[in-house]
Design a protein around this nucleic acid. Structure first.
Lengths: 330, 330
DNA sequence: TTGTATGCGTTATCAC
DNA sequence: GTGATAACGCATACAA
């Protein structure tokens, strides 16, 4: 495999000149540049970035840690991250944590081992102190999900307001008993969405019933199971609000299996607006997050940290949107 | 940031000894090892892998190029790749090509630039000669989709047999006019699936009607649009076979929108068995590929190439399965 | 405009 | 069991 030295030899110049050509330094004669370029082509030379990166002590790589490659919710976010990254000369490596703290740590080693310049965390499961420690030494930004008080920059939406809006929508449609399919974790999104749900219920003058919040695990099956529980209540809810589209879809399936109609008998609202939401039958009313922009802003925050040092923390809250479809309105 | 030299200094030994400790060399005294370990902890030292990789000229990273992170079909495959990779000390970086040849090339540079030791290609769009060239110089294996005659190892399924089985299933159910939603490309999978479709039709003694194959683009919308075309035919098909689940789901939606029932009026078979297939209403009959195993085998083939040099080419065909659900049988 | 020489952080060879 | 030291491939300060 050709090295810069081979190129220099073939082009009859020094390695320094070759390096200058590669890096578009202006101070190199036309003649020399041509020779070098030819030699590069002839030798099919590609710079060894290990050498370059070691020398420059930067890798132009950033890490995107997500809990689940298969979750379509993250797809657009990643696109935003990549677009901004590429525009700035960074490659992004996507890594699958599976919400497994060990895998998170394995991939974080890439950062500590200087194989990446920074990391975008999609939904960290490590605890606050650990995250804070990482954030103090390396460029980190959280995207969507974040840990409050960890002192790490994040970009997200106002989950409280979003949930409030979703539930308000149901209330406006006349629903009084609204079941909520939440999750059994301490994510900010979960806590905020439950709070938004509660506030909307209470603002409407209805009594908040703790029993109408049940915990799933973001899966279709859990949405299905919980909804069946709701439907078997004597005073069953006429609407269900799920904190993820997949669980909402499980809810729809459950309602149909019970011989009921959506939205006539039970209305359903989801969260995320994944692509499947508009493919389902009925199409799902849901909260749309600005996924692409979330990714873009996260990457921009990260780049700023990398360039300017990591002193400044910055949090960005983007707008969400309620997308009304067939699962709530005919 | 601490380097091996700092550790050596603090531990009162030479860098060589530190290196030995890091790499678990047996020839280092208990005493020295302890000192080094302590120094490492105190200094919060992490080896700079750029240095190590440069020295060893290997990165223990492999590239997984996929057309689309958001396609749930690839999720399990990636899991297989990662599991085998991790088990062998490799990290895998997932990269999004979006079926864009430029992005493919950008990421392939990481290989040429020695930032990765090998690449697993999920659905290459580059042409045969280009792929062959890459395959001659670097460890490469194709997974699922592959280019025939490129001389690159691949692991896939028998798409001809799978399509044949799917269509045969419909024929057995009594269907005679079966529309096929294919794609407008030259993927092996597409060609083989069309051939399997044709053969099944002909083996059943029916006439093959070219007009019953229409081309989509793997999207929900294209499945929807094409199905509406099918349904508006005077002699409309009573069954539809789509080469992707997403298009099949579009077909179901179209059939329902026309006021028809699935499977009573029109039956539908998809391909891939994405998680969403069993969430839809009706649940989708489809061909299941052994996604996880596809990933595992691909990674194993790649590791073999990396270790043994890249001389040997090997192709692996795994078993598929027809999953019969509600979209064909009540 | 060009070349020489140094060092980035490691590992590995060699001598002790 | 240990320590000098020479690479790995490149970028750059400095000298010319």
């Amino acid at each position: 495999m050709a090295t810069i030295r081979d190129v220099a030899l073939k082009a009859g110049v020094s390695v320094a000149t070759v390096s200058r050509v590669i890096n578009n330094s202006p101070s190199v004669s036309k003649h020399a540049r041509e020779n070098v370029l030819n030699a590069i082509k002839e030798l099919n030379y590609y710079p060894n970035l290990l050498g370059r990166n070691l020398r420059r002590s930067k890798t132009s790589m950033i890490l995107a840690l997500m809990p689940n490659v298969s979750n379509p919710f993250y797809a657009r976010i990643v696109k935003g991250i990549e677009d901004i990254g590429h525009k700035n000369g960074y490659s992004v490596m996507i890594c699958n944590t599976e919400s497994d703290i060990n895998r998170e740590k394995i991939y974080l080693e890439l950062l500590k081992n200087r194989l990446a310049d920074g990391v975008i965390f999609m939904a960290p499961v490590m605890n606050k102190d650990e995250l804070t420690a990482i954030g103090e030494s390396y460029p980190v930004v959280e995207c969507c999900e974040y840990i409050e008080g960890a002192g790490v920059s994040y970009v997200s939406i106002d989950n409280f307001a979003a949930a409030y809006k979703a539930v308000k929508h149901l209330i406006t449609l006349g629903h009084k008993r609204i079941g909520m399919i939440s999750a059994d974790n301490n994510f900010v999104s979960t806590i905020q969405r439950e709070a938004g749900y509660k506030k909307a219920i209470e603002d409407a003058g209805n009594v908040f019933d703790e029993g109408l919040i049940k915990k799933g695990d973001y899966s279709f099956k859990s949405g299905l199971r919980i909804s069946k529980q709701f439907l078997s209540l004597v005073d069953r809810p006429t609407a269900i609000f799920a904190i993820s589209d997949i669980m909402a879809i499980g809810a729809i399936r459950a309602i149909k299996e019970e011989g009921l109609k959506v939205p006539d008998d039970v209305a359903v609202v989801g969260f995320d607006d994944i692509s499947f939401a508009s493919m389902y039958d009925p199409m799902l009313t849901t909260i749309s997050q600005p996924k692409y922009d979330l990714g873009c802003y996260a990457m921009e925050l990260l780049l700023k940290q990398i360039k300017d040092g990591l002193k400044e923390r910055e949090n960005i809250i983007l707008e969400h949107e309620l997308i009304i479809r067939e699962s709530t309105v005919k």
